[in-house]
Structures are given as structure tokens and as C-alpha cells.
Design a protein around this nucleic acid. Structure first.
Length: 201
DNA sequence: TTGGCGATTGACT
DNA sequence: GTCAATCGCCAAG
């Protein structure tokens, strides 16, 4: 479960990174000693200042988006709809605010902890199948993880056997109708056949 | 200072 | 299928 090296994030093609992240592991260790891991089955790429769907579109640099303008390999976590924390990984290089949204995980370790955090009795899609759900299962919040390093020790991504490109489905991103023509870009990636991807069509 | 709205989810008809 | 929850963000005034 060694962390992916910073070099993985410090590359210019955020769409390629979003695709490569399918199959990788997200690992979380919280202060209370709980350890949870999930395999990434759904991602979305957000291509910075030229992408109308990105928070950083047109160079919008504010207190919220500041993390995306910093170095790659850190977590950009933000609150949406007043109640859901969404996890992104920052890529590219300082000054270029690219990021990949982690949209769904297949739980692989720490199942009991995840169930408790999600207040569920049994594993089912809504345990980690959605961007606002997986953060809850892994104990990730804006307060504790925004700006945190993705090379540990609290949060990190780990390598796993590569997924064949034939097993990855690309499609338009979810919930970004406001992005006009950019809403049509095929920047969403899913693991083909996974029962753990988000319900959004 | 204000008001409209959001990279979502779950409850309900 | 519809819709409310809930609050921080941010462009406009």
C-alpha cells in the first residue's frame, strides 16, 4: 500500500490521469486509528482555467480554489449543497489548477468502520458509490483533509494492477450542465461492469 | 451586504 | 418521476 509518487500527479494531462486512476486505491487513516481503503471505480477530470465546469474556470482563484493552484499531489476537498464533502486530487504543476474528482469506490478494507460511518447494516452501493458518500465512509472532510498531502500519513493513493483501457467507459460529466459545451466532454471514467459506480446516468 | 445557486443525496408521489 | 435539505461560495450591488 505504498503511496503513489508525486510524479504521478505532476503531469500535464489531467484526463489521462483521471483514466489511470481507475483501479487505484484510496487509503485513509484517521486520528482514532481507523483504517479504510477503497478501489477507485469512477472519476472525473477538471481541466482548470479553460474548463467551464471547473471551479477554477477563467482563472477564478479564491480561498476555496486556492489548493488547486498549489503543488500537485494534495487533496482538494470542498463542501457542496451545504452537506457533502467531495474529494479531488490536484494534478499538473503549481499555478495550473487541474484536479480529478473521485466519484465512487469499491470498499476493500475497513468495512466495519465504513458501515458505521455511513450508518448502514450491510455493504451496498450507497456505502461508497457516490462522491458525497465515499468521503463519509473514509472520514474525509474539508476541515480535516483540504490541502492534505496525498502521500500520507493520513490520506494517500496506492498503486494497483492497471485496468485495461477496454474495461474503462468514458462519458460526459455529471451535474455540470452550467458548463455549456464543456458539459459534453467525455471526462468521466467508470470501471466497466462495476456495481459500485454512482447511480448518476 | 446580499441573494442565487451548487462537481449531491435521500425521501417521497 | 419530483423535490427539499442546508450552508458556504462568490459576483453583483
Amino acid at each position: 500500500m505504498a503511496p503513489l509518487p508525486l510524479g504521478f500527479y505532476a503531469r500535464p494531462d489531467v484526463v489521462a490521469i483521471a483514466q489511470e486512476l481507475i483501479g487505484k486505491l484510496v487509503c485513509s487513516r484517521t486520528d482514532d486509528g481507523h483504517f479504510t481503503v477503497g478501489r477507485i471505480v469512477e472519476t472525473e477530470a477538471y481541466a482548470g482555467t479553460t474548463d467551464r465546469a471547473s471551479h477554477a474556470y477563467n482563472g477564478r482563484r479564491t480561498a476555496r480554489t486556492e489548493v488547486m493552484f498549489g503543488p500537485p499531489g494534495v487533496a482538494y476537498v470542498y463542501l457542496v449543497y451545504g452537506m457533502y464533502h467531495l474529494l479531488n486530487v490536484v494534478t499538473h504543476s503549481p499555478g495550473v489548477p487541474h484536479a480529478v474528482l473521485i466519484r465512487a469506490l469499491e470498499p476493500t478494507e475497513g468495512l466495519a468502520t465504513m458501515l458505521q460511518r455511513r450508518r448502514l447494516a450491510r455493504p451496498e452501493r450507497r456505502l461508497t458509490g457516490g462522491p458525497g458518500l465515499l468521503t463519509q465512509a473514509l472520514g474525509i472532510t474539508v476541515a480535516t483533509h483540504n490541502g492534505a498531502s496525498l502521500t500520507g500519513p493520513d490520506l494517500w493513493l496506492a498503486d494497483a494492477p492497471a485496468v485495461s483501457e477496454a474495461d474503462i467507459v468514458a462519458s460526459p460529466r455529471v451535474g455540470v450542465a452550467y458548463a455549456a459545451e464543456d458539459a459534453l466532454l467525455p471526462y468521466r471514467f467508470r470501471l466497466r461492469g462495476s456495481a459500485w459506480t454512482s447511480p448518476a446516468r
